[in-house]
């Protein structure tokens, strides 16, 4: 059982003085993930908010080995470091045991870094890839990605006179990674820190690649109040918009089941990016999102052997 008091014993591997926005979810995710790491660790980060804000030369917020290469190649870069590790270990040139963790936003993971991620997962490198999914290209100013939810207002899926926001559902990346037959895949939320910490621990223990998709609040992009980040992250789980589950060797387990799912309107209403859904002209959109969430949840129940 993970206890916060025990987690505070590790010296944090991310320092204060990073320049992420007030109330950003990304550093909360990194902080929580790294508190459970016991070995020396090499971190790779894809270009994005997390990377630019934590390593503004000559400052670095990383108290660990860190590499940023480019936007689309955190997975392939880290697979190179992990291979160097295996080679040097095999030749007796390195004594220490290492962990390898990559972080990428949804743009760098779902979209431009998708091929490199797929390649690294397929090749079987022992590394953990954590996607902090805030559902758009926030670093460049809130452009839609393939993780942006249906109906969301972004600067490249703007609400206009004839188009009410993004017209496509988000890509289910967690399931796509599971289809690579990697030993551990999970979806998590920083509000549920205990669940997330346990998943990171498990991921680091498997003898192969692992992937955790984590919902990350972006107050700027979501148009939510800075202080509501954890509250809204919790609601995402309680409405089944962001279910918490894991896939171990192909077996699906739901790790948290809301006693009674709350309506999606509770998730949509506090977010400015969904404001237009409540305009008279767009009647029915909220219901359509509810139907989509219900279908997804039923599918997940079925996959985890709990179909009703």
């Amino acid at each position: 059982m993970v206890k916060l008091k025990d987690l505070t014993k590790n010296k944090g591997l991310l320092s204060g003085g990073h320049r992420l926005c007030q109330g950003c979810g990304a550093s909360v995710i990194v902080h929580q993930a790294l508190q459970v790491v016991e070995n020396p660790v090499v971190i790779a980060v894809a270009t994005g908010c997390l990377e630019v804000s934590t390593t503004i030369y000559p400052f670095t917020a990383w108290r660990t080995s860190f590499i940023h290469n480019a936007f689309e190649n955190a997975a392939s870069t880290l697979s190179g470091v992990e291979t160097a590790y295996r080679s040097l270990k095999k030749q007796g040139k390195l004594a220490a045991d290492y962990n390898f963790i990559a972080f990428g936003g949804d743009g760098g993971t779902y979209d431009i870094g998708f091929q490199a991620l797929s390649g690294a997962m397929e090749r079987g490198h022992r590394l953990l890839y954590i996607c902090y999914d805030n559902g758009a290209y926030m670093n460049t100013g809130i452009q839609r990605s393939s993780a942006t939810p249906w109906g969301a207002n972004t600067t490249t899926s703007p609400v206009g006179k004839v188009i009410p926001g993004k017209k496509q559902y988000r890509k289910e990346l967690t399931e796509i990674i599971a289809a690579h037959n990697v030993p551990y895949v999970a979806q998590a939320s920083p509000y549920h820190w205990k669940d997330f910490s346990r998943k990171v621990k498990k991921a680091l223990e498997v003898a192969g690649p692992s992937f955790i998709n984590v919902l990350s609040v972006c107050p700027r992009g979501w148009r939510t109040a800075e202080n509501k980040g954890m509250e809204i992250t919790k609601i995402a789980v309680e409405t089944n918009v962001w279910p918490l589950y894991e896939i171990e060797d192909g077996e699906y387990h739901i790790t948290y089941k809301p006693k009674k799912a709350r309506p999606v309107i509770e998730w949509l209403k506090p977010q400015g990016r969904f404001k237009h859904l409540f305009a008279e002209a767009n009647t029915g959109m909220v219901e359509q999102i509810q139907q989509h969430v219900n279908r997804r949840w039923q599918k997940l129940l079925k996959l985890s052997g709990q179909a009703q």
């Binding site: 090499v42 790779a44 590499i67 290469n69 480019a70 190649n73 392939s76 870069t77 880290l78 697979s79 190179g80 470091v81 992990e82 291979t83 160097a84 590790y85 080679s87 040097l88 091929q115 490199a116 390649g119």
Partner: peptide, 12 residues
């Protein structure tokens, strides 16, 4: 990815 992994390995 060849060059990316080579960069990672060399940095390693």
């Amino acid at each position: 990815s060849a060059m990316s992994a080579t960069v990672g390995a060399s940095a390693g």
